[in-house]
């Protein structure tokens, strides 16, 4: 059996060719960038990714010892502090990244899906943080659950997503939402690498063929 275009390898070969064509290694991990990528605003994407990794790792340490550990151990309390502050940093960097990308209109040039996946990452992160507050097992959790149930019940979500059910919220917080957020973040980053860094608004490139300046992105 041969794949499309005469090349072999069946489905596997077809998928490999497609992946390599879309994201050849030098595009996935380039060692150069367009010269216009010269602003500190560009570092907030990678800072957000770094913070997400710290959030996942510190959450992982909390998971190792179980949900009650941090209430009864100084080391646990410190790891909980790491988890909280990495989340604060994650949201901090993500919002600045969002502001930056908005003012760059970074969705131009077939990059709308990159923007959309980024926005969904933001909403998923809010959900992940929210469920984190619910599973602290302290006064905060009790009050937030009691308040949030009204909002969620008022639109029918509370009937299925019960914020008063600690077990359900813990599973969402440590399994479902991190998984979805992780996958979305990977998709988002691959889209950035695939499409490349968005050129400046109204950027003109020097066309080497006729050496005329071409206006674009009007």
């Amino acid at each position: 059996m041969s794949g499309m275009g005469g090349a072999g390898g069946g489905w596997t070969g077809a998928v490999r060719r497609r992946v390599v064509r879309a994201l050849p290694p030098e595009k996935l991990l380039p060692d150069t960038q367009p010269a216009y990528m010269a602003s500190w605003i560009y570092v907030f994407g990678v800072l957000t990714v770094a913070a997400l990794i710290v959030v996942l790792l510190t959450g992982g340490v909390l998971a190792l010892k179980g949900p009650a550990w941090w209430h009864v151990s100084g080391a646990g309390k410190y790891v909980n502090g790491l988890h909280l502050w990495s989340v604060e940093l994650f949201m901090f960097f993500m919002v600045i990244h969002l502001w930056g990308k908005f003012f760059m209109a970074a969705w131009r040039g077939r990059r709308a899906l990159t923007w959309v996946t980024g926005a969904v990452c933001f909403f998923t992160s809010i959900g992940a943080a929210f469920t984190g507050y619910l599973v602290q097992q302290n006064f905060d959790s009790q009050w937030i659950a009691g308040q949030a149930k009204d909002g969620l019940n008022s639109v029918g979500i509370g009937a299925f997503f019960n914020v008063l059910d600690f077990g359900q919220m813990l599973m969402w917080h440590i399994v479902l939402l991190p998984l979805v957020l992780g996958l979305l973040a990977i998709w988002h980053i691959l889209l950035v690498r695939w499409r490349g860094i968005v050129p400046p608004i109204d950027a003109a490139t020097i066309d080497p063929a006729d050496a005329t300046t071409r206006e674009a992105a009007r």
Binding site: P34, V54, P199, A203, D207
Partner: peptide
């Protein structure tokens, strides 16, 4: 003309070390 946004590859480039940038970001965070 409502042309497409130009391909980033059509612009002059400069060296940029993404892995180094990520490592520094991780250390900072």
């Amino acid at each position: 003309r409502k042309t497409a946004v130009p391909d980033p590859a059509a612009f002059p480039t400069r060296s940029y070390d993404l892995v180094k940038e990520f490592t520094i970001a991780l250390v900072v965070v």
